[in-house]
């Protein structure tokens, strides 16, 4: 399985990353090396092994439905580059026709 330049460009676009030509080339090579390394796993038989997405052995970790104190509005907004009327202020992204 090979990671093409087009795939790198698509992933970069979805992640809002502006890559230079040189970076795209470099990341394509690096990603291919990583994927190639992980391909080694294919030499093992995984028949009857459940796919795992988390550290195995744990399930059903819940919390009770209880409210605890939230941050204050000032704290919540303290890292925001721009704020107004207790809100985060961001460029508008909806265009209604």
């Amino acid at each position: 399985m090979e990671i093409t330049r087009q795939e790198v460009e698509k992933v970069a676009k979805l992640a809002r990353l502006a890559l230079t030509e040189a970076e795209t080339t470099a990341f394509s090579q690096q990603l291919n090396q990583i994927v190639g390394y992980v391909q080694k796993l294919k030499s093992f038989s995984t028949e009857g092994v459940e796919p795992t997405s988390t550290v195995p052995g744990q399930s059903n970790v819940f919390r009770p439905d209880q409210v605890q104190a939230s941050l204050s509005t000032e704290q919540a907004l303290s890292n925001a580059p721009d704020a107004e009327a207790q809100c985060f202020r961001v460029p508008k992204i909806i265009q209604e026709s």
């Binding site: 819940f62 919390r63 009770p64 439905d65 941050l71 509005t73």
Partner: peptide
Amino acid sequence: TANSQTCPVCLGLPGTLPVINEKAV
């Protein structure tokens, strides 16, 4: 009041860990 009901988890701050509300399930 806007943004008076948030915490590092629901603000998406790095290093936080979500834990499932059993009642919702």
